[in-house]
Design a protein around this nucleic acid. Structure first.
Length: 711
DNA sequence: ACCTGAAATATTTTT
DNA sequence: TATTTCAGGT
């Protein structure tokens, strides 16, 4: 570490970095060097002789954690993989893996994701004959999650009406089922560890001694249980550094409470507050827009960004005629900026909801602009991936009923509803898992010969896999499972090539994972791999082998990042602010904060787009511009109307028809082997006629039209 | 038990 | 529109 690394900090930042008191709260506006302060403060502590093992840094997203690690590594020039940097869930998980016994968990507990959770609740509702039409599953899920994130167990909740009685009944049963099956959901990770700290003072003391210096980034996003967790970790001699920005609190819907920042000053009166208000990221115009907009919120701690930068460009607002026009305008501008010397990496396209990415993606593909989409349909949430994982989970933990149910008939082996019901009954009678129920059935010979044979084969298959856990390495084991189960053939039936590719990607993911992680034995590696997948759903759908690409992501996902040029699209009433957030004032203010986050991602140039018409559930809708747009002062805006009138859908799409085929440029087509793609070019004539297609997974290929079908 | 096509349904953000 | 569930036929 160089001695002069601190010389490029401003006085406020320096104050925060070198603060010597016990606790410090850094109120840091967007672009004021938040992460930078954390990273430098850690570096400074190390330079003061603090041991790296005594530092804990908590973030909210995996991306933020990775970013912090990278930056630390860069300025410290030492490997920091031993340091505790990670998300809250990550921290809780690591601790629970160490102290599983004391936390009253089974050694190989499984983390379940939201989809599993919903499935579980669904099956419980089914058992209690609850009418799903009257009681949407979502309601139960929210009830359970909100309570857990408030630290409230089912036996602590006191219902005040019939509605709550029903909700509670399911919550209670959900807890029982999770315990029986060895399941731990996301909130459970945090709740468990808090409870562990409360009842086991030894472990708490151990952790307090280890984590003497605690950093929490994005503190405005903490919920009650996370707040409690931090509080539990703080001993008399602990040092706490909190960084946050109440104006960027955008996770209220999952229980985040920006009030925690105020509460902190109340709970720790000696905490010193430092405000970072100088923005280094954006031009004056962008900062002005952001300040004016956020000023319309009533609940704020109060903070005003300023910058020394020039006015810069005006904010361009473009009124599109359709979502296609919107996408094409973006393409046009991207091409313009590339010609003017910008890199694709300087550009980001941000939206309110992930569904908006589809049409933009198609146009990017068509224009051969490399891009990377973050979020959305996560790799490990895809059905075929979950099928494979279910096999792995069942092998690691025979009593995993969710996985059992998922794959007992995948590939179809003749086990239907009736047999499954019979197995469930036996499991109920014997208070055991479906796997054990199957074995009991086989001993008692209770079902028809044919079914028994199928079940025997299934049990043998799983046992074969179990036997190989210690013989094969992780990726070979997974590959073995895929082979022995015939999953590849099964998915071929759905003529979706992408599914098979995805399956093969798990093998690669496992291979890479085992390179990085060392464990005592194969089973624990397997379990760690499964946990890793649940907690860090990295996007493997990387359509781009290029280092340089345009970034597409939701505004939520973009928090903490910055780009030279930013496109905010779909700035329409109902979409942003989202229709579900308009109803009440708190959620509307949260939408405005999200809008503020979106604006402040841009360093140099900001585009905002909305469309006068948009396809909503298959119907063309007239749209109104977002109310937030009108909150931006007019003198900061340039209205780009040049294409407004003459531009029509498909305006520049050349058609190409022969007597057998009918294609247009930009058309979405499917190839039996290469999967989905976009028509890029036509070549030749008559029998030599061919079509160049840019495939999502395989890039550009020249294809005979007879192999292409419409999506 | 499985397949098929029709009908219903749901559309936010993430660990 | 895209996905999931449902009902009825094989």
């Amino acid at each position: 570490m160089k001695n002069d690394i601190f010389s490029n900090l401003n006085s406020k930042q320096l104050q925060a970095v070198m603060y010597t008191g016990q606790n410090v709260l850094i109120l840091a506006g967007a672009g004021s060097g938040k992460t930078r302060v954390i990273v430098y403060r850690i570096a400074w502590l190390l330079s003061q002789g603090i041991n790296i093992n005594n530092i804990l840094a908590v973030t909210f997203t995996n991306k933020a954690a990775k970013e912090m690690k990278d930056r630390l590594e860069k300025i410290l020039c030492i490997p920091i993989n031993l340091m505790w940097v990670g998300t809250f869930h990550n921290l809780a998980h690591k601790l629970l893996r160490i102290h599983w016994k004391e936390a009253e968990l089974n050694k190989n507990f499984q983390i379940i994701d939201t989809n599993d959770q919903i499935k579980l609740i669904k099956s419980i509702c089914h058992d209690y004959t609850i009418d799903i039409n009257l009681w949407p599953i979502q309601q139960f899920k929210n009830f359970i999650n909100i309570n857990k994130s408030n630290g409230v167990r089912s036996n602590e909740f006191i219902p005040t009406n019939y509605n709550e009685e029903i909700l509670l009944k399911i919550y209670k049963q959900y807890e029982i089922v999770c315990n029986c099956n060895n399941f731990v959901d996301f909130n459970e990770l945090l709740l468990r560890i808090c409870e562990l700290f409360k009842k086991n003072l030894n472990i708490k003391q151990l952790c307090r001694e280890k984590f003497q210096y605690i950093f929490v980034d994005e503190f405005q996003d903490t919920n009650k249980i996370q707040y409690t967790l931090i509080k539990e970790l703080l001993g008399d001699n602990s040092n706490l550094t909190i960084v946050g920005d109440d104006d960027q609190s955008i996770y209220g819907w999952r229980g985040a409470n920006p009030g925690n920042m105020l509460r902190l000053s109340h709970d720790y009166p000696n905490i010193h507050t430092i405000r970072l208000e100088q923005n280094y990221r954006s031009t004056f115009n962008i900062i002005s827009a952001a300040n004016t907009v956020i000023n319309n919120n009533t609940t704020r701690l109060g903070k005003k960004l300023w910058t020394e930068k020039d006015k810069g460009e005006l904010i361009t607002i473009y009124t599109a005629s359709s979502e296609l026009d919107e996408a094409q305008y973006i393409i046009e501008k991207i091409q313009f900026w590339i010609k003017s010397g910008k890199k694709l990496k300087d550009l980001a396209i941000l939206y309110r909801s992930n569904a908006q990415s589809r049409i933009i993606e198609e146009q990017l593909l068509r224009s051969e602009i490399p891009y990377k989409i973050y979020g959305g349909l996560r790799f490990f949430e895809r059905a075929e991936i979950k099928d494979v994982l279910a096999y792995i989970r069942l092998i690691a933990n025979n009593n995993d009923d969710i996985s059992f149910e998922r794959i007992i008939n995948i590939p179809t082996r003749g086990i239907g509803e009736v047999t499954l019901k019979a197995l469930k009954n036996i499991a109920k009678q014997n208070k055991c898992s479906l796997w054990q129920a199957t074995k009991i059935t086989l001993i008692n010979q209770e079902l028809s010969k044919r079914i028994l044979q199928i079940l025997q084969k299934f049990v043998d298959l799983i046992n074969e896999c179990i036997n190989r856990i210690n013989i094969l390495n992780l990726s070979s084991l997974i590959s073995y499972i895929i082979d022995i189960t015939n999953l590849r053939e099964y998915y071929t039936k759905f003529d979706r090539q992408s599914r098979i590719e995805n399956i093969d990607e798990i093998i690669i993911a496992a291979e890479q994972y085992s390179l990085f992680v060392q464990t005592s034995n194969n089973l624990s590696l397997l379990q760690e791999f499964l946990s890793h997948i649940s907690l860090e759903s990295e996007d493997a759908s990387d359509h781009c082998n290029n280092e340089n690409y345009v970034t597409l992501m939701s505004m939520h996902a973009a928090k903490g990042l910055e780009f030279s040029i930013v496109f905010l699209c779909g700035m329409e009433e109902g979409l942003f602010p989202h229709i579900k957030s308009i109803i009440n004032f708190e959620s509307l203010e949260e939408e405005r904060r999200l809008f503020y986050v979106g604006i402040t991602r841009a360093m140099d140039k900001l585009y905002m787009l909305y469309s006068k018409k948009r396809l909503v559930y298959g119907h063309k809708n007239e749209r109104q511009p977002s109310r937030f747009l009108s909150e931006i002062p007019l003198n900061l805006i340039f209205n780009d109307n040049k294409n407004d009138i003459q531009k029509l859908d498909h305006n520049d799409m050349k058609l190409c028809s022969t007597k057998n085929y009918h294609f247009y440029l930009g058309q979405k087509v499917v190839h039996p082997y290469f999967g989905e793609g976009i028509i890029n070019k036509f070549e030749g004539e008559g029998e030599y006629f061919s079509v160049t297609v840019n495939f999502r997974k395989f890039g550009k290929k020249s294809i005979l039209p007879k192999y292409l079908s419409n999506k």
